[in-house]
Amino acid sequence: MTTLPAAPVAAAGRSSSSVVVARATTAAALTVLMALAVLLLALRWPALQWPGLGVLLGVPLVRNAFLIVGLRGRDRAHAVFGAVLLVMVAVAAAFAAAR
């Protein structure tokens, strides 16, 4: 019977969950930087205002997308629920504004 080698993350002393969190938060931070760049460009070209704000508002969704891909079990279900809730908030607010 052969024994599979331990996962690299476990060998490095970090649980797979903390690696997923690190990836997700890194993605969120990079999205913020991207949103900042677009918002600063929007000062010169106002047409970029909405894309800039959209990217900034989408930061939690980007983070949750990485969590959904990386996590398993109950934590994944919570991440899915959080993402669905945020999308519902955005859609409801957009409908309310359109009315």
Binding site: A24, T25, A28, V32, L36, L56, R63, L67
Partner: peptide
């Protein structure tokens, strides 16, 4: 949103946050 993303990036790399 921006400051929370930055501070959670630091916390996420340290691995001491309770997801």
């Amino acid at each position: 949103i921006a400051t929370s993303a930055a501070s959670s990036y630091v916390a996420g790399r340290r691995g001491d946050a309770r997801l």
